[in-house]
Amino acid sequence: MIQLKQIEKTYRTDTIETLALNGINLNIAKGEFLSIMGPSGCGKSTLLNIMGLLDAPSSGEVLIDGQQTTHLSDKALARFRNQKIGFIFQSFHLINDLKVLDNVELPLLYRNISAKERTELAKEALVKVGLSNRMKHFPAQLSGGQKQRVAIARAIVGKPELILADEPTGNLDSAMGNEIMELLLHLNEVDGATIVMVTHDETMAKKTHRLVRLFDGSQVNDHALKPMYA
């Protein structure tokens, strides 16, 4: 599904050069649920952003479904993200001015489909995350857990093959965190979505197929936790 080859990312200012990622090589199989752990500032989110084509590596190659993405134009990258990737962020990033249903419809706005179909798909996604009774609410009227469910509905509405979750339980209490984790596991096991999750929570990470640890921008550990088709 994803192949990262010799990924390096360097941030440069006038005076300082910081190496955020250093020679990362990673293969992620279709249907795999992989977690990435490491101390703060070790490059976890940077790696996730590069996998999601939100950021470009300074050097190295990113292949998704065997397709080279390094030299794609802004428009092609946008189309690629729209068709293949769904994002879940720690701070939800919902658009507060739009109702829940409109938030979930957002990725579909950039596809050539009718408004009616958009609404149907968004409702379907909200049913899947258990929020069919909150469609007309605004994000500000929801709890943290509910907001993250909306964000998950938005990530899965376009039926992407890959879901990238950046600390999806980081802003939630443990009960809500567990609910969200169960939902992600369900999406992986039942719907077959490939998921890459950045987390600080060892317990959550242990529920996934594989754990990659980073330290100072380098990959220090990569081990399987459970078989993919157990």
Binding site: G52, L54, D74, K75, A78, R79, R81, N82, Q83, G86, F87, H93, L94, I95, L106, P107, L109, Y110, R111, R154, G158
Partner: peptide
């Protein structure tokens, strides 16, 4: 800007 980031992440190009 957060909305811009989200829209871009979910497939909006600069032109859109």
């Amino acid at each position: 800007s957060s909305e811009i980031g989200v829209r871009k992440a979910f497939g909006a190009s600069s032109g859109t």
